[in-house]
């Protein structure tokens, strides 16, 4: 059963108030749930739809367009590892392989302890600091094997 807390309800009211049309709050609400639960379940889609007077099917159709929303549970930390051109030129491919091996998961997969989900990502606008990765909201730039070790090992 998916429910919004009263605190979240207040937040939703505030978000919806920013727009002349309720539907505009759809992405912000999906983000709210995604950040809380790490993914957006079918029940959550229904609850969001109710808030915004949209059908669950419509919510899903919009949600499926955007890569940052996950329909399945993810790890505690979502690693977006950039492999686009500027990072590629500076050795991102090798480092991504190294990271996957270190975590013991495939690219796109989640570690068995549910701590990390590893994604290969398109450009994240940190091109002057490549190779780089984003873990949850934090950008890590100018990566080396040693830095990857240090960052991943230090996360609780």
């Amino acid at each position: 059963m998916f429910v919004f807390t009263s605190e979240e309800k207040n937040k939703i009211e505030k978000i919806v108030g920013r727009y002349p049309v309720k539907q505009s709050a759809l992405l912000p609400l999906l983000t709210l749930v995604q950040r809380r639960d790490g993914y957006v379940s079918p029940e959550a889609m229904e609850a969001i739809g109710k808030e915004l007077e949209l059908s669950p099917a419509y919510v899903q159709s919009v949600m499926s367009f955007y890569t940052m929303y996950h329909a399945q549970p993810t790890g505690k930390y979502i690693i977006l590892f950039c492999h686009n051109i500027s990072c590629q030129l500076n050795g991102a491919d090798e480092l991504l392989k190294y990271t996957a091996k270190k975590l013991g998961t495939d690219v796109g997969g989640t570690t068995t302890d549910k701590k990390f989900t590893l994604h290969q990502e398109e450009c994240l606008a940190a091109c002057c600091g490549g190779p780089m990765m984003r873990i949850n909201d934090t950008f890590y730039e100018n990566l080396t094997r040693e830095k990857v070790d240090q960052i991943l090992d230090s996360l609780p």
Binding site: V21, L52, F65, Y66, T67, E122
Partner: peptide, 25 residues
């Protein structure tokens, strides 16, 4: 207003659709 990972939303009319809570086409 935060998008959610779609390069196409940098195209101005797709951005508007996304801002209106639609697929970013």
């Amino acid at each position: 207003h935060l998008g959610a990972g779609a390069y196409i939303c940098g195209e101005e009319s797709a951005l508007l659709n996304s801002l209106e809570g639609r697929r970013g086409e």
